[in-house]
Design a protein around this nucleic acid. Structure first.
Lengths: 170, 170
DNA sequence: ATTGCTGCAAAACCTTTGCAAATGT
DNA sequence: ACATTTGCAAAGGTTTTGCAGCAAT
């Protein structure tokens, strides 16, 4: 998680150069999530948005501690509580998805707006998205049969990714 | 964990009298899970098996603390660690399912052996089972497309149950 | 100036671990 | 007797909270 050319900034403008092209869209989405709820454009937020845009690009899943460490490397003085508070807001506003690993620990991931679910590697903890799902009709039917009003659902597939299979880490 | 007029029950069998008839089956399953791994038939285990058979009948979902409290009421001196250790074994041996609530907290539930998933009430935290699922073919296809070897999956539907809807707790 | 975010440290939670004592076989 | 489990208390890890100070508007 290096970086230098820290031009990105909060500007909802195109960035180009190092493949940051569509990152601006991501950056805007994340900024909106913050500023819908609050006003101040503070340093911690700028750094967080930047880091999350980067994580969005790689699709990396991370723990709260991973994120805290990553941010400290840039900002130094950022508090754990700030990270927790931000993650909470961002999950709430659907910028982040919370994913439960098989061992029960949690990771977060910047996820697109489209309906999707997660495929998790039990070895390296990589998380990928997929679209397949039960039909809305079927889900509603499940709720109806039990007298529930359905609000949401999660579908998570656990397994071993190809590189972990190859390297035999499995 | 009250109980009395617990006629509702999801048991696909008649219940009669104290509804303990088929509980013996449940009891045996739970005992086996313990004794497959170890020998001693200790008091804490007997009480645990009994309590879980009861919870199986009502289909109630519980937290580790709920269970600990429930057991203490009977046994008095049972330690939290024993409860944690037992739950771990029982999840491992598929007697219990771990269910994640919408708020991120965890509950456990005695679940049948058949493949199933969970419907969770976001208000009262009731958990019910349902059978619907993607086809094995589809799940394998998801894995194949991403180069994953699929090991397992979870599907959880969250909503509000009819009684919470009625009582407006929602 | 006002508002509310931030960092820090402490507190609250939840779960695991070490070990002597108790228990079952 | 021997092998395990149990209860207790302490340790570990994670998340939340309270609050003074600070930054943004």
């Amino acid at each position: 998680m290096k970086n230098e050319s820290r031009d990105a900034s909060r500007s909802p403008r195109q960035v180009c150069a190092h493949g940051d092209r569509h990152a601006s869209e991501e950056v805007r989405r994340i900024e909106n999530a913050f500023f819908d709820l609050s006003r101040p454009n503070t340093a911690p937020r700028r750094i967080l948005v930047e880091k999350l845009a980067e994580l969005a690009r790689t699709g990396e899943a991370f723990s709260t501690d991973d994120l805290w460490q990553g941010l400290r490397a840039v900002h130094g003085r950022i508090g754990r509580a700030t990270v927790y508070r931000s993650i909470e807001q961002l999950v709430e506003s659907k910028v982040l998805d919370r994913v439960e690993l098989r061992d029960g620990s949690r990771r977060y991931r910047v996820c697109g707006g489209a309906h999707h679910h997660h495929l998790v590697c039990n070895t390296c903890h990589r998380v990928e998205e997929f679209q397949e799902c039960l039909s809305v009709r079927t889900i509603e039917e499940i709720g109806r049969r039990h007298g529930f009003t359905v609000e949401e659902h999660t579908l998570t597939v656990y397994g071993t990714c190809s590189s972990c299979l190859k390297s035999g880490d499995k």
